[in-house]
């Protein structure tokens, strides 16, 4: 085989693994959009800022020499609480007043800027380097087109994705989540505490965003208050693309967006990278408006 050919193949696989790793993290963030949308028919635009918050909490604790696992647990807890608080104090009052859906949507955008702004005030707006913190056993990946950070980003995101799927499909609270999603009135009649289910859903979304935030911060070794904006948009794109409200939709959507932008930036040029997710979104929505795995009936409210 010619050396040039070898090189081309290697590059292909590099793009592939980079796309899969980043895409899996997108999928993890996309689930947060999907879960909340399923239950409230609301696109929670504060989700990207929630993700940012998660990464900053870890940075904050590491600054005090906290053990990394402790910092991570604190981040999951506090970010989950932030998401729950967003719902309790900003969204629930609107639902109680039966405000139009657009009011909630705008509120989530507002919350997103409040979180971002507070992070700027308390943590500074500059880009801060994030330690390559996971003190994990060295893997021998030499000769393979996948790097260690990619491997861990993919594996951990994938594992979390599976855990979230199991929660939704195999547990009692997951069954209640699906019930509320399909028929809120009947869910009340089953004795389900619907508000509690909504709270749990926001916590799950916040917690998974926190972990994704930390993983991605570790991957790029960079943290800053606006870091969640673009990834939030991309994950949202992934959720819509796969079919919002469906777990495997978020999975497929995340991987497609990740792969598409990795290949696009590899073969076409890095400048196109961020536009690519949205180009695919537009194409897929024209062909299939409900997304790849979306359910037909999406209007409810």
């Amino acid at each position: 085989m010619y050396p040039g050919m070898q090189q081309k193949k290697l590059m292909f696989w590099r793009y592939m693994f980079n796309g899969l790793a980043v895409g899996m993290a997108y999928a993890l963030v996309a689930v947060g959009y999907s879960l909340v949308f399923g239950i409230l028919r609301l696109i929670n635009f504060s989700h990207g800022a929630t993700y940012t918050f998660g990464a900053h909490v870890v940075l904050f604790f590491i600054g005090y020499q906290t053990n990394i696992w402790l910092a991570l647990s604190a981040s999951v807890l506090f970010t989950g609480i932030l998401a729950v608080g967003t719902n309790k104090f900003a969204l629930e009052p609107l639902r109680k007043k039966k405000s139009p859906p657009i009011a909630s949507l705008i509120t989530t955008i507002g919350v997103s800027y409040i979180i971002q702004n507070l992070l700027m005030v308390f943590m500074g707006s500059e880009r801060k380097s994030f330690p390559n913190m996971l003190d994990i056993p060295k893997l021998d990946l030499s000769g393979l087109p996948i790097t260690e950070p990619q491997f861990f980003l993919f594996t951990i995101s994938f594992a979390l994705f599976i855990i979230l799927t199991l929660i939704v499909h195999k547990t009692s609270i997951g069954l209640a989540m699906r019930a509320v999603e399909q028929n809120t009135k009947a869910a009340h009649l089953m004795g389900i505490n619907v508000n509690q289910v909504i709270t749990f859903t926001f916590f799950l979304g916040g917690a998974s965003a926190a972990i994704a935030g930390v993983l991605m911060a570790g991957y790029y070794q960079l943290v800053y208050p606006t870091m969640g904006f673009l990834i939030g948009m991309k994950a949202f794109t992934a959720a819509i693309l796969g079919g919002i409200g469906v777990m495997h939709g978020a999975f497929a959507g995340g991987l497609i967006v990740g792969l598409a932008e990795s290949f696009a930036s590899g073969y076409i040029g890095g400048t196109y990278r961020d536009a690519f997710a949205f180009i695919i979104l537009i194409i897929i929505l024209i062909i299939k408006p409900t997304g790849l795995f979306g359910k037909k009936t999406i209007t409810k409210v």
Binding site: A179, Q182, N183, K185
Partner: peptide, 12 residues
Amino acid sequence: MSPEGREVFPQL
């Protein structure tokens, strides 16, 4: 209560 119009969970 069994509500008017059945109100089952269609995808379950």
